[in-house]
Nucleic acid binder design. Structure first.
Length: 106
DNA sequence: CTAATGACATTTG
DNA sequence: ACAAATGCCATTA
């Protein structure tokens, strides 16, 4: 299985209204290639199915998007995620930890 | 094979 | 808090 396909597979687990990070995805894949994760999502062929817009930077900043960061923000706000000054509001509460089992609590 | 390239992350000034 | 520098690794040329 190619690296990019693993990225898509893990990204699909991020639910509506939550976000995760490139580094977190890499961590879930047991690698440090967070930068390559970004490259993979950039070319994401399963555009709407794989929610690549729910992946942001480790500090809560929006990060990039193939269709433009503005579009990414719009999609996130449609899911109830607020964005201010290019940052996720309440990032710690919206953050989806892919490697933990505690996601269902919040 | 080598080198360049990012939708990044951390550290430093 | 922000910007620059550094390190990073799969992909691509």
């Amino acid at each position: 299985m190619k690296f990019s396909e693993k990225v898509y597979k893990i990204t699909k687990k991020i639910p509506r209204g939550r976000v995760s990070t490139y580094g977190e995805i890499a961590h879930a894949l047991n690698t440090k290639a967070y930068r390559a994760v970004g490259s993979a999502l950039n070319k994401n062929p399963y555009a709407p199915i794989v929610p690549c817009h729910r992946v942001v930077n480790s500090d809560g900043k929006i990060g990039g998007f193939a269709d433009g960061t503005n579009k990414k923000i719009k999609m996130l706000e449609k899911e109830g995620i607020k964005v201010k000054n290019n940052r996720i509001v309440n990032f710690d509460k919206k953050f989806f930890r892919l490697n933990l089992i505690f996601n269902y609590i919040i």
